[in-house]
C-alpha cells in the first residue's frame, strides 16, 4: 500500500485524541480501506459534524468539510447530489449520529443515498466532558448520571437497518482486520452504508465504568462480541454481534434523481406532445 503518511495532513500530527482513544485506530483502518479500494484522494470528500470523532476529517488529506453538530449528513447529501461521482465518507460519533443528528441519520438511510457513514460508538460524549449518550445504556456512570443512567440504549445497527440502509455492519477497534474489510465493503457499496465501530474512550467512559486501562476495554471488545452467524453467538446470546447485517441492492437516490431530471427534460423537449405534469 501507499504510505499512511501520504493520506495524512502530517502537520497536524500527533492528533488531539487522548492516549488509547479508539478513534485513532478507526482512522488507521479507514486509511487502509481507502487504499484497498484504490480511490484517488481527489475523488473523496469527508464530511464530519462535531465531537471527538468529527476531528478525523482534520487529519485526512481528502476534500474535507467540518460542519455543524449532527448535520454532517445534510451537508454530505448536498455534496453528493451536486457531484454524484464523488465518494462521500461521514465519520460520526454516537451522539452526533443518533441524538443530535438522529433525524438526518434515519432519513439519509431511508433515501439510500450513496454515502458511507462510520459511527464511532464510544457510548459517551467525550469532548464535552463525559455526559451519557444514546448508546450508553442502563447502569452506566457518566458526569450527567452520577448515580448511573436509567436510559435504554439505541442499537445503531438495528436503527440503520430499520430505517432502510442497504449496507449495515458492526465491528470494534480490537478487530482491526475486520475493520478494514468492512470499511472497504461499505465504501464499495452503492447505497447508504453504515459501519458501527465500537471504540474505546478510556478517559471518560472507561475510568468511570470499571476499566482503568485502555487494553482492558479492548479485551472487553474481544470477549464481549462474536461474529454474526457463529456458534459462539448462538450459545451466548448476551454477546454483541459483529459482522454484516444488511447487504442488499435498492435504487440509489442520486440515480433516481438523475431519472427525474431526464423525465423533466424529455417533457419539456416534447413541447405540445409532452406536457409537463400537473
Amino acid at each position: 500500500m501507499k504510505s499512511i503518511d501520504s493520506y495524512l495532513r502530517t502537520r497536524f500530527m500527533p492528533h488531539i485524541w487522548c492516549p488509547g482513544c479508539g478513534h485513532g485506530t478507526v482512522l488507521n483502518g479507514l486509511i487502509r480501506s481507502v487504499d484497498a479500494v484504490g480511490l484517488n484522494k481527489n475523488e473523496l470528500v469527508m464530511v464530519s459534524g462535531i465531537g471527538c470523532s468529527a476531528r478525523i476529517a482534520g487529519y485526512l488529506d481528502f476534500h474535507t468539510l467540518h460542519t455543524l453538530h449532527g448535520r454532517a449528513l445534510a451537508f454530505a447529501t448536498g455534496v453528493k447530489m451536486s457531484r454524484p461521482d464523488l465518494t462521500i465518507l461521514v465519520p460520526m460519533g454516537d451522539g452526533d449520529a443518533l441524538a443530535i443528528g438522529g433525524n438526518h441519520f434515519i432519513h439519509a438511510a431511508r433515501r439510500n443515498i450513496d454515502i458511507t457513514v462510520i459511527v464511532l460508538n464510544n457510548r459517551i460524549y467525550g469532548m464535552t466532558g463525559g455526559q451519557f449518550s444514546p448508546t450508553s445504556g442502563c447502569g452506566i456512570q457518566a458526569t450527567t448520571a452520577p448515580y448511573s443512567s436509567i436510559d435504554q440504549p439505541f442499537d445503531a445497527v438495528q436503527l440503520a437497518s430499520a430505517a432502510g440502509a442497504t449496507f449495515v455492519a458492526r465491528t470494534t477497534t480490537y478487530h482491526v482486520n475486520e475493520l478494514e474489510q468492512l470499511l472497504t465493503r461499505a465504501i464499495r457499496h452503492h447505497g447508504f452504508s453504515v459501519v458501527e465501530v465500537l471504540s474505546q474512550c478510556p478517559t471518560h467512559f472507561g475510568r468511570r465504568n470499571g476499566h482503568q486501562e485502555t487494553v482492558e476495554m479492548l479485551r472487553h471488545f474481544k470477549e464481549g462480541t462474536a461474529k454474526v452467524g457463529s456458534r459462539q453467538l448462538a450459545e451466548q446470546v448476551d454477546l454483541i454481534p459483529r459482522g454484516v447485517f444488511v447487504d442488499e441492492e435498492r435504487p440509489e437516490y442520486c440515480d433516481q434523481y438523475a431519472e427525474v431530471i431526464q423525465r423533466a427534460q424529455a417533457a419539456r423537449a416534447g413541447g405540445a406532445g409532452g406536457e409537463e405534469p400537473q
Binding site: 488509547g20 485513532g24 485506530t25 479492548l218
Partner: peptide, 13 residues
Amino acid sequence: ELCERMCPDLAIH
C-alpha cells in the same frame, strides 16, 4: 501487523 494496525497514534510502521 497487529501493532501497526491497532496503534491509535499511527506511530508504528
